[in-house]
Amino acid sequence: MSLTDVRAVRTEEPKPAPPNGAKFWLYRFDTKTVPYLLIAPFFILFAIFGLFPLIFNAVVSLRHWRLDDPTLTGWAGMENFTKLVDDSDFWDSLLNTFGIFILSTVPQLLIALMLANLLNRKLRGATFWRIGVLLPYVTPVAASTLVFAVFFSRDYGLANWFLSLVGFGEEQPLDWRASTWSSWMAIAVMVNWKWIGYNALLYLSAMQAIPKDVYEAAAVDGAGPWRQLWKITVPMIQPVVLFTVILSTIGGLQLFNEPMLFDENPALANGGYDHQWRTIAQLIYKVGWRDLDLGYAAAMSWALFLIILVVAAVNAIATRRLGGGK
């Protein structure tokens, strides 16, 4: 099953004996109207709670809309957007978002590929291994992030203890939250941990759909397991790789939970004392619900939406190029 597998529905209609009167009316109602009633709840609920907010968001972004001062309303024109261009907070957060995004997506997909390759063997307890790698996926991100917050703490954190085992930072333990790079790395570890198993199963599913004779043909050329993986398996599962790249782009650029709860006091939505790991999604939350400026937060949401569109498109094209080459 794939997202593009949408077949046309058969067109001929079964013809029961034509009834009459009320029965005929009921039959007509049942075949002509009821199908629409069955799909209506989805479209109505989606229109109200999914589509409308997205469109209305555009209106809000063009207005003054403050939660603390309801009298301050009216059209703002492009004011929120021009403010955004000069707002160093926005650009800093954008940089953080991209930094964490790259640190968390590239290893995530590469390790997932390796893991899928391990799972794509004749294994004892195949189901056990597959279920096992899903543990991070079901663990609430709020809970796991709080464990990692302790794991990466300066004084009694396990991460520093491991580092000290290999002789690093014994006099001066690493303060993971203090510098930009180390905080990005810590957050990237959390994101990688959560999504590797999930992506591995997506890859595994595609790997198992590869026809076996493709491998037999390649064996004649003397391809070893490693070449087999890079020359046959990866190109054959390219559509799924593309799918995971786009999913990770959409998810990664909206990263909120991990940076939020990594803070020593999450309620402030600071992303570090110097905002060194504050992401755009976190900034939107801070502007909207700490500074109470919903108009400006809406403008930022739109900007993020456009950025996601562009980056997803660029990544999709790059993945095609890389995978389709040779």
């Binding site: 907010p53 997205l54 968001n57 809000v60 909207g288 949401s301 993020l304 939406f305």
Partner: peptide
């Protein structure tokens, strides 16, 4: 991406 409509 529904998340982007949270303000509205």
């Amino acid at each position: 991406p529904n998340q982007l409509g949270v303000v509205a």
